[in-house]
C-alpha cells in the first residue's frame, strides 16, 4: 500500500513539476537533496564539488522535467543525471586524482554526513578507480540492475559486470589489509 501511495504521490509530483510549479520543485528538493548529495559525495569524494553537482542536478531537473517520461522513478532519473554530471566533471578535470589528503578530508565529511558508518568501508569505496566505484555504488549500494547501469553509462552489460566484479575484489583486498 505504501508503495502505491508513494507511486501516486510521485505521479502528482511529476505532473506538478511539468506544469512548472515552484512549490513542487521545493518539495522535490527537500525530498531528494539528501539522496542526491549522498551519491554525489560518494562518487566524487569531494564535499565542495559534490554540492556543486547537486545544484547542477536540480537545475538539470528543472530544465528537463518536461522530458521525463516516467518510465522509472524520479529518484532513478536523478541518479542518472547525478552520475552523468559526475562523469562530465571527471572528463573536464581529469587531473583530479584522489590523494591521501583528499581521502582524509572525505572521511571527515563522510563521518559527519553519514553517522554510524564504517569508515573503512567508505574509505575502500573512495579508493576504487572512478569507473569501478560508480558501478559498485549503483549496483551494490543503490540497487540498480546491470542493464540499467549499462544504459546509464552507455556501455555493454558485460562491461558493467566486469567493472563490478573488479570493484568487489579490490574492496575485499583493501578491507583485508
Amino acid at each position: 500500500m505504501a508503495t502505491v501511495v508513494g507511486m501516486e504521490s510521485e505521479f502528482w509530483l511529476a505532473r506538478s513539476l511539468k506544469q512548472g510549479s515552484d512549490q513542487a520543485f521545493e518539495v522535490l528538493y527537500a525530498q531528494q537533496y539528501r539522496s542526491v548529495y549522498a551519491l554525489a559525495l560518494r562518487l566524487l569524494c569531494d564535499p565542495g564539488t559534490a554540492e556543486d553537482v547537486v545544484q547542477e542536478v536540480f537545475i538539470s531537473v528543472w530544465r528537463g522535467i518536461k522530458g521525463f517520461r516516467g518510465e522509472g522513478s524520479i529518484l532513478q532519473w536523478m541518479h542518472t543525471i547525478t552520475v552523468r554530471t559526475a562523469i562530465r566533471r571527471w572528463q573536464h578535470h581529469p587531473e583530479v586524482q584522489l590523494d591521501e589528503e583528499m581521502i582524509l578530508r572525505y572521511e571527515q565529511t563522510a563521518t559527519r554526513v553519514f553517522p554510524d558508518i564504517r569508515i573503512q568501508l567508505e574509505r575502500a569505496i573512495a579508493m576504487l578507480p572512478a569507473g569501478a566505484r560508480t558501478v559498485l555504488l549503483l549496483h551494490d549500494v543503490y540497487g540498480h540492475t546491470h542493464s540499467e547501469i549499462a544504459a546509464l553509462l552507455d556501455v555493454a552489460v558485460g562491461t558493467v559486470k566486469a567493472q563490478l566484479h573488479r570493484a568487489r575484489n579490490l574492496m575485499k583486498q583493501e578491507l583485508q589489509r
Partner: peptide, 30 residues
C-alpha cells in the same frame, strides 16, 4: 563476498545533513 555485499547494502543512501538552501536558478542558468 556475501558479507561485503551485506555491508554495502546496509550503507545509508541519504546524507544526514540538512539541504543547503535552494537558490532557484536565475534565467541565465536555465
Amino acid at each position: 563476498t556475501r558479507a561485503l555485499l551485506h555491508e554495502l547494502k546496509s550503507l545509508p543512501t541519504e546524507a544526514q545533513t540538512a539541504p543547503t538552501p535552494w537558490n532557484p536558478p536565475v534565467q541565465h542558468q536555465l
